[in-house]
Structures are given as C-alpha cells and as structure tokens.
Amino acid sequence: MANLLELRNLSKSHGAFNLRDVDLAVPAGTITGLIGANGAGKSTLLKLVLGLLPLDGGEIRLFGEDARLGGARLRQRIGFVQESPTLFPLLRVDELGEVVAPFYPRWDRATYRRICDAFELPRKTAFARLSQGSRMKAALALALSHEAELLLLDEPTSGLDPLMRRDLLDLLLEVIQDEGRAVLFSTHITSDLERVADHVAILKAGRLVLAGAKDDLLESWALVRGGEELLEGPLKDRCRGGERTELGLTLLCEGAGSLASLLPDGALQERPSLEDLVYFHDRGKESLCAR
C-alpha cells in the first residue's frame, strides 16, 4: 500500500506549544486515528499538513511529493473538515458548493447534491442556521464532492449525537472501500477509533508516543493490575506508565505476549483499550517505571 501522507521528523513551535520529531505514515485504503487530549497537538499537526502553519523542521510528503513544493496543487486531492466548520455563515448549503466548486477541477455538482440529500441537509438553509451536526455534514459533503483521495478530519465527531456519530463513522468506512483513498481522523473520543481505525497514533504534549496498526498495538501492550510487588520484579523494565490507587497498582507494560512469566502471584494481565493506552502511557513513569 502506498502512503498518501508521510510525516518525517516534523517539528513546529507555536506559541508555548512544541510539536517535536513526529513521524507518521497514512497508507492508502486505511483510516488512521490521531488520538490525544485537548492541546496535545492534533490540530497543529493537521494544519501543518494543510500548509496553514509553516514548518520549523522535518518533511511532509503528500501523495509521494514534497508538500512544500506541491502546495495548492496537492490540496486539490485533499478534503478537510474541521471541528467547528466556520465556512460562510450567510451562504445557503447549495451556495457553499457553488463558491467552493471553481477551485476543484474534479468537483462534481451531482455528487454534492446527492450527498446533501443523503445527509438530509436542507439545501436552501443558511449555514449559520444549521445545527452543529448538520454543519459537520455540510463540511463533509464539501470534502467528499471533489473525489478527495485523502480526508483530513479534525475532531469530526465532537458535538455530534450518538446516532449522527455512528452515521459519520459508517460513511468513513464507505469512503475507504475505494482502496486509493485514506482518512486521517483526529479525536479524543477513543471509542470512535476502536470501531473504525486501522492505524492509530497517540500524541501527548506535542510528541508522538505510540503509532502503528491498532490491533498490533492493542495486542502488544498489556495492563497489569496488582499490589506493590509488581515493582519488585523484572516487570518494572517493561513498564511505560501506570497509576497507584487505594486498590493497588495498574501498570501499562509492553511486550504483552511474554509478560505472563514475569507476573507475580495474584497479578492480573488485561488487554488495554485505546483509552487505556492514551491514559496510562507516560503517566507516573518516573515513580513507577525503570526507564
């Protein structure tokens, strides 16, 4: 599978925030989830890809080309949806399509109408009068009507009700049925990614702490629960974060397949969720882990 997007050693200082040494690939035919707490750097990363923020260092390759050289031409092949689409509040849904269409050689008016109808969007209503969910749908309709090969979605499900969220996720699965397309989808709602993502990348404070195929990650990490004796054995070397509560210790350990022999009596090993990976990775590392 060719990579539609590759980030190499990406870095950016933006006010007090620093994005450092991010390496990430988004292969065609996949949905990649970018997970992180608010302020972790998800939006900054997407803005760098879109050229809204100039790079401090590193390289972005879009469709195999240097994004800095390809610029606007490469953006013809990208569809972008942001968390709170601003677009043009006074324009009606059908007018939005007319304003955007001239900039995309592959714009398909019929597709735009079809998607708007499928989303049950009132085409004669001003964008400002749409609900949050409908605004998101309108932005998605714009992103999907020019045969975008790479969809970049910044927190598309926040603010949507559960039914609409499910519809959106189904739509993304439909998009990647065409194996030449890919989706990079930032969110802090990990349950969305559990359902649809093939790959995940976890950002914390501007650093990419984990990245890879979702199933591989979930298979290779484990949560170990037990008492203080967890820290006395070789398990400590495998620990990458954890938490001490009144009930005992919870450690996030790597190398799940070979942990069983290292567990003290009474310790429990569990498969983590994506949320566990985000929550526990690097948490309390200095006091609990060997490195």
């Binding site: 879109l50 809204l52 610029g71 606007a72 953006r75 601003t86 043009f88 509040p89 995309y104």
Partner: peptide, 17 residues
C-alpha cells in the same frame, strides 16, 4: 476575523494567490 481566511487557504489556493 471570521476565520474564513483559513477556510480559503485549505482550498487549493496558494498564499501567493
């Protein structure tokens, strides 16, 4: 002020344009 400059630059429109 309305944030639509960012929307414009997300389109295939260069800053030079």
């Amino acid at each position: 002020a309305k944030g639509t400059l960012g929307d414009l630059l997300v389109l295939p429109v260069s800053r030079a344009a």
